[in-house]
Every structure is written in structure tokens, then in C-alpha cells.
Computed example of a mutant assay.
Amino acid sequence: MTAPAVIDTRSVGRTYEAVSGPVRALDGVSFAVRAGELVAIIGPSGSGKSTLLNILGLLDRPGEGTYLLDGVDTAGLREKERTRLRAERIGFVFQAFHLVAHKSAGVNVVLPLVYNRAPRHERRRAAEQALDRVNLRHRMDALPHTLSGGEKQRVAIARATVHRPSLLLCDEPTGNLDTESTGMIMDHLAQLASEGLAVVVVTHDLTVAERADRVLRVKDGRLDRAEETCGR
């Protein structure tokens, strides 16, 4: 049985107004990502990757076309509804980690549960489980400055997945990491995908892209082509 589409974009376009005139950031982008897939998006700077990621994360709206998230047409949603959908269905992982410096790893991880108003008695247990999944439960009370780069990113992954989203968006998640840590992070992302999460990784690193099930190449705002890889 084919897994359901978590992401379904249909002829998505986005144009920005600049001093020099209109800039066509995305043009007719159509693709789907299903539950259990690990998909990499690559392309040169200025190709439209960031614009696409912002639209997928409900941080921006397409100028034309359709974007369905878990079957929900996001075009007609009010901002409050988009915010709720983003908080419930999407996790974000960034190159710079974005951990709260004066909060422990465990407190950082529970932040999405606080925003989603999860019962207080459930938060610590959920944080422990999320950190255990990235082999960092023993660092529950550690402050970010005591963690290595790889550990910080693993905490960020735990935070992004503690509320059990259906989509994980990763923006250059290994950009600040060494080769060993990069491999470990990709192992975790592949494991999450194998458990049914839809994972999208924007990257410049071709060795990272090779770990994906599919690679989407973006060029001049268009989806140049998609290709299968050796996967995980």
C-alpha cells in the first residue's frame, strides 16, 4: 500500500518585488513527499531552495499553485490556523541549532510541548523519550555550551520531533559539523524516516544528499529533476 503524501505541491510559484523589478523565486514547482521518505533538496545559492523551504514550513505563502500538507489545502487558511498546523504537524532543524543557551537540553526539548499546551506531567517523560531516541538521555540536564556540535544538533532533532510531527524540515542540518557527526545525524534522520516520518533536508553537501531516497534539484526557481539515490 502506498504511503500517504505528507507534502503535495502543485504548480507552486512565488514572485517577490525588488528594486530592480519582480524576482521569480519559484516557478511551477510540483512534487510530493510521502510518509517514510527521506528527500534531499539541492541547488545553487539563489536557486529558490530557501523560498521553497519557507513555503513547506508555512512561513510563507505561494503566489500561485497549491500546497497540501497532510491533505490540508493551506491556501485558504487564516494565519492563526497556519500557525496551529505548523506547531502540530511540522518540526524544524537548522544549521545553527537555535538552542536556548541558558536552558538545559531537556528544557529545550520540551519547548514545542509547552507551545502546544501539553499537560505538564507529560513533558519530562516525552523529553526523556525524545532524547533517548538520539542517544542523549544522559545529557538531559546539560546546558548547550557543554555539548559538542553533534550533540547540539541531536538535541535540536529531539526538540523538533518530541511532539510527533508528520513532517521534519532540515535546513543545512550538518553544515556546522565534522564528518563523523554528519554521519551520525544522517543516521538519526534516516531512522526517523524509516519509522514513518517525512523528512526533507536542504543541503549543499552531496554526501548528505546521497543518503536520501530521492534528490530534488532546484535551479532558477524550477524543479530541474528528481533522481533516486542508493538511499539509507
Rank of each mutant, 00 (worst) to 15 (best):
S104F: 01
R123V: 04
A3I: 03
A193V: 01
P173T: 07
L168F: 04
V12I: 15
H145E: 10
S45L: 04
V114K: 08
V39G: 09
F97C: 09
R34K: 13
I55V: 12
A190D: 05
N108L: 11
H138I: 02
K219V: 14
E79A: 15
I7Y: 08
R117I: 03
H163I: 07
N176T: 02
V162I: 03
V114F: 00
A105V: 11
R225H: 11
E37L: 13
H98F: 12
Y67T: 08
S47I: 08
E64R: 15
R154M: 10
L56R: 06
E79N: 15
L56M: 15
V19Y: 02
N54C: 09
L59W: 02
R164K: 13
G91E: 05
A96E: 10
E88A: 15
I42W: 00
D178Y: 04
E227A: 14
L223F: 05
H204Y: 09
Q153A: 07
S181T: 09
S148P: 02
L147V: 10
A3M: 10
S11H: 05
R78C: 00
E151D: 09
T161K: 05
H121C: 02
E17T: 15
M184K: 11
A5F: 04
A5D: 15
V100R: 01
E172W: 13
T15Y: 00
R14C: 08
M140T: 06
A190C: 07
L68R: 15
N54A: 14
A198D: 01
V107P: 03
S20K: 11
L69K: 12
D187M: 07
G150M: 11
N54E: 06
E172V: 11
L206P: 00
R120Q: 07
V218D: 05
G196T: 01
V114G: 00
R78T: 14
R10S: 14
R225S: 13
R232A: 15
T83E: 11
V100H: 06
A35V: 07
L189H: 07
L168R: 04
L168M: 06
Q129D: 13
R124E: 10
D171S: 13
A142S: 15
L68M: 12
V155P: 01
F97Y: 15
G231C: 12
T203R: 13
H188I: 14
L169W: 10
G76L: 10
Y115C: 01
G231H: 10
T51Q: 12
R225E: 14
A118W: 03
I42P: 02
I42A: 14
V162C: 02
A35T: 07
H163M: 06
C170L: 12
V29R: 08
I42G: 04
E151H: 12
A18K: 07
L85V: 12
I42K: 08
R232G: 14
L147K: 14
D141V: 12
I41C: 03
E227K: 12
V29W: 02
L38V: 12
H204T: 15
A96S: 15
V107R: 14
H102S: 15
C170D: 05
R164S: 14
V202P: 12
Y67I: 05
E79Y: 05
E37D: 08
A118F: 09
D205L: 00
L58T: 11
L52P: 07
S30Q: 03
A126T: 05
F94W: 09
N116K: 10
R89D: 10
L197Q: 03
T51V: 09
A142K: 03
G13R: 12
E151M: 09
K152W: 02
L197C: 02
E172Q: 13
L38R: 12
T51G: 09
